[in-house]
Computed example of a mutant assay.
Amino acid sequence: MEAVANTKPPVFVTVSALDAGHLTLPEHLFITDADPEKCNTVPSLSFLIQHPSPSPSRPSSNVTNLVFDLGIKRDLDRYTPAQQEHTAQRQPVITEPDCAASLRYGAAKEEGVTGEEVLLDPGKDVDIAVISHVHWDHVGTPSDFSGATFAVGSGTLDLLKNGAGHLYPAELFNDDELPADRTVEFPPVPGSSEYAEAASDIPKNTAAAPDTQARLPRSADRWSWQPLGGFPHAIDFFGDGSVYVVDSPGHLYGHVNLLARIGDRKYVYLGGDCCHDTRILSGETGIAMYGDGKGGLRSVHVDTNAARRTLDRIKSFVTEKNEVEVEVVLAHDAGWRAGNRHRFWPGKL
């Protein structure tokens, strides 16, 4: 993992999991050889990443707070009508605690062992929100994060406004989902051809508005996609090897993952929706295919082949002989959530 090497002293971050709602997934839409009647209620996880640097939006703080994904909106009525039709097919949907409540009160709130003391105020204390992709169960309630700058994959703003082809019409998204004056896209991925199955529908990159109020790390003016291990495209978010944004094509346009360095030889890979079941990542099962309504087949991914390539890269990255430990955490892993409650905020991974 040569790109992680740095002559300066290593910089570590802390990562805490956050409950951000639950939804119910029918197995046959996600994995091969599934029981057609089986459904699983799973979390939509968010994560708090704390970086030891002066906050770009709170000068008095020596910690930058970054949240990865916002989960499910606590008010389902705030989804578009087309989105609400989709949420109706994912019942039960559990909206509490959402990402904001988890930041305020932590995981112990559910056991009733805390008072009303606020641990982190999402409107005042969160500096940056990185959204893996803009499906309804990851966008949460951005208005809760009134002081944060939002960072999203290239093409995301175009996707929110115009949709992308018949499988992803505009009505499946909220045009004003993200604050225009505080949202930036990562640079376009050079020479990207991962979405060959839907090349004509690929959303275009949107440059940040000249009057944007976005506050980013000092390294932002040097952001560029560089190889990292087996990943062809990654961005050193803080410029110190502590957090990498990894281009993770396949699931939805602009889909990104995060790699966080939490120890000298220990990393956490936040995989978003690279897949929806750990058995796919382990190779025990495959990605389910089903009818696309036009006589063909599709999966839950916009480009299934690209999604498979991303999974292959993740598996290779985790197992390569680089003398580091990499833990992969998926957004909808109910088993991981059940076995790691002590690692939810204010606990740490």
Rank of each mutant, 00 (worst) to 15 (best):
E2L: 05
V4K: 06
K8V: 04
K8E: 15
V11Y: 03
V15N: 00
A17K: 09
L18Y: 06
L18Q: 03
D19T: 07
D19L: 12
H22T: 12
H22L: 11
L23T: 14
T24I: 07
T24Q: 10
L25D: 08
L25A: 06
P26V: 08
F30E: 12
I31E: 11
I31Q: 11
T32P: 03
D33V: 00
D33R: 14
A34F: 09
K38M: 12
K38R: 15
L45S: 10
Q50C: 13
H51K: 05
S53R: 11
S60H: 13
N62E: 12
N65V: 03
N65S: 15
V67Q: 05
D69A: 14
I72G: 09
I72K: 07
D77Q: 15
T87K: 08
A88V: 09
A88C: 10
E96S: 14
G106P: 03
A108C: 00
K109T: 04
E110T: 05
E110R: 13
E111H: 07
E116P: 02
V118G: 02
L119V: 04
V126M: 05
D127M: 07
D127P: 01
S132F: 02
V134N: 00
D137L: 10
V139I: 15
D144T: 11
T149H: 03
V152P: 07
G155Y: 08
T156L: 04
K161T: 15
K161P: 00
G165Y: 07
G165R: 11
F173D: 06
F173E: 08
D176E: 15
D181H: 07
R182W: 05
R182T: 11
T183M: 11
V184R: 06
E185C: 07
F186P: 02
V189R: 06
V189T: 13
S192H: 04
Y195A: 09
Y195E: 06
S200L: 13
N205T: 08
A207H: 08
P210M: 10
P210W: 04
D211H: 14
D211Q: 15
T212W: 06
A214R: 01
S219W: 08
D221F: 00
S224R: 13
Q226H: 12
P227L: 01
P232E: 10
A234P: 01
A234Q: 04
D236A: 06
F237W: 10
F237C: 06
D240K: 03
G241T: 01
G241P: 01
D247R: 13
S248T: 14
H255F: 00
R261E: 05
G263D: 14
G263E: 04
D273A: 02
C275R: 00
R279E: 07
G283I: 00
M289A: 12
M289H: 13
G291R: 07
G293P: 09
G296S: 11
R298I: 12
S299L: 04
V300R: 10
D303S: 14
A306G: 06
S316P: 00
E320P: 03
E323L: 11
L330G: 10
H332L: 11
A334S: 10
N340F: 04
P346Q: 05
G347A: 09
L349K: 01
